[in-house]
Design a protein around this nucleic acid. Structure first.
Length: 473
RNA sequence: CGGGGAUUGGCGCAAUUGGCUAGCGCGCACGCUUCGGGUGCGUGAGGCUGGGGGUUCGAAUCCCCCAUCCCCGACCA
């Protein structure tokens, strides 16, 4: 009997990924190239991420707002590196209401420019800083090569944009955002990641420096999972935005921007998936407990209905009474969708005053008395959440290699892949050569890396840090 | 944007060298049956063969153009 109709998880992760996204009804291809439709079950994941992160953002005192979808081209052009980086990816509106526009409008690829134009208008004194604004929105980047969730032409995200009087305050905010992302990944998505600073070649167009959280996927590729940028005074200078400080001097505010997108859902899917489909951490799972009464068992159905009502008060519960599906069919269906716990109830269970509980992460089946069932479920959900994180962390640790020879570096990239910690002289030419040779790019310099004396893995030149390398998504 | 593969009911596929009414499995609808790991049986619905143009007595099949998807590159917060 064919257990699974899914593509093989281990053979080809990207085929499995596409398959599971479609079959679990997370998303579907749109009629527009490179775009996707996020279906209700997938959107529920995004809503879960939103509410978790939004709470952190608000606790920090950052307020939500909304800026327009369209950005006048000359705004984007104000910061030179910014427009250089983004112009190949822009979608541009040239006609409105049937008439050629006098100034073309870019569909926002990110909102720095349109937001900062307003910040300038709103402020003239140091007393009006900091500005702490975030927006949840869509952006468009005309990508040549797209994947569901991981890289689509249009995607959803939040972008926080703050401005501060001092460089220190600004950097505190940059690092706060990075920590908030780490917390979201660790605590909500049960994913481990490494925080660090990007190399010049990899940083955001227009940034002074870029920080990111890098997560390792089961195929040994790194996913840049969220970013936080120290924009320094680059944009305030480009916009000629100054405020007067206490000494009546005109100063350029320091700025930062930070974002987390629907790409995170792609990471979530891969990080925990297996040959049976999704495996959702309980905190993010749209359905935490699915109740499957064994079809045809009358007393079981009654108990299932009662439990559904009771458990709904504490958990996200779904009662599956779909007609015409066998028990086995339902089991497989909900495993594909990654529901953490399945409550199986048959007449046998009812007569013995118990239920059968099955864990999605381990496949383990447990029989439990009805008494204190909710307590036990809570405990189990907690355990699963922790265990999934521990597993992803272990996977990452097991696939993180500290390497001192280029041959070894190449060998890892040609076989298991993963994170490689190696000395690099910080010369972009070396970085580029390494990429050409091995496909690996620098992912980041992990925060807290200690300064050492070392030799660049490529040229042998003086190096002070071990950088994190990997094949990137 | 370059290289490769693909596009036929919802999904997965088939259809000799161009030739009968485009088939099959799954799914779907209805009925019965079954139901503790993808349940059997019966009946039925569902197709301008991705779009456009050409060649031909005749095109899913040959030619041209276009679109989309997948894989590998280049590019890429």
């Amino acid at each position: 009997m064919a257990k699974s109709q899914l593509k093989d998880f281990n053979a080809d992760l990207s085929e499995w990924f596409n398959d599971v996204v479609l079959k679990a009804e997370l998303a579907d291809y749109a009629p527009v190239k490179g775009c996707m439709i996020i279906r209700p079950y997938g959107y529920a994941l995004w809503e879960g991420i939103q509410s978790f992160l939004d709470k952190l953002i608000k606790e920090k005192g950052v307020k939500n707002a909304y800026f327009p979808l369209f950005i006048p081209i000359h705004y984007l052009q104000k910061e030179k590196e910014h427009i250089k980086g983004f112009s190949p990816q822009l979608a541009i509106v040239t006609i409105g209401g049937g008439e050629e526009l006098t100034e073309k409008l870019a569909v926002r690829p990110t909102s720095e420019t349109i937001m900062y134009g307003m910040y300038k208008k709103w402020t003239s004194s140091w007393r009006e800083l900091p500005i702490l604004i975030n927006q949840w929105c869509n952006v468009v980047r005309w990508e040549k090569r797209t994947y569901l969730f991981l890289r689509t032409s249009e995607f959803l995200w939040q972008e926080g944009h703050c401005a501060h009087l001092t460089s220190k305050e600004n950097m505190d905010m940059v690092l706060w955002a990075l920590d908030a992302y780490e917390k979201t990944y660790n605590d909500l998505l049960a994913m481990y990641g490494i925080k660090g600073v990007k190399s010049d070649a990899e940083k955001f167009a227009g940034a002074g420096s870029t920080f990111s959280l890098e997560c390792l996927m089961p195929n040994g590729k790194a996913l840049q999972s969220a970013t936080s940028h120290d924009l320094s005074q680059n944009f305030s200078k480009s916009f000629d935005w100054t405020v007067q400080d206490k000494n009546k001097a005109k100063v350029y505010p320091y700025q930062n921007s930070w974002g987390l997108s629907t790409r995170s859902i792609g990471g979530l899917i891969m990080a925990h998936g297996d040959e049976n489909g999704l495996k959702l951490p309980p905190l993010i799972a749209p359905i935490q407990v699915v109740i499957v009464p064994i079809p045809g068992h009358a007393t079981a159905l009654k108990l299932a209905q009662t439990l559904n009502i009771n458990l709904k008060k504490k958990f996200r519960v779904n009662l599956d009474t779909t007609d015409g599906e066998t028990a086995g069919f339902k089991f497989n269906k909900w495993e594909l969708k990654g529901v953490p716990l399945r409550l199986e109830i048959g007449d046998k269970d009812v007569s013995e005053n118990r239920v059968t509980l099955c864990r999605r992460d381990t496949g383990e089946k447990i029989t439990l008395p009805l008494l204190d069932l909710d307590k036990k479920i809570k405990e189990l959900l907690n355990t699963i959440q922790k265990s999934l994180f521990a597993q992803h962390k272990k996977f990452t640790d097991d696939h993180t290699f500290t390497v001192d020879s280029y041959d070894e570096f190449k060998k890892i990239m040609a076989t298991t892949r993963g994170f490689i910690k190696a000395f690099w002289c910080e010369n972009p030419d070396c970085e580029n050569e390494i990429k050409k040779d091995t496909k690996a790019t620098t992912r980041c310099l992990p925060l807290g890396s200690k300064e050492e004396e070392g030799k660049c893995i490529h040229c042998g030149g003086v190096s002070h840090h071990r950088w994190l390398f990997a094949l990137s998504y």
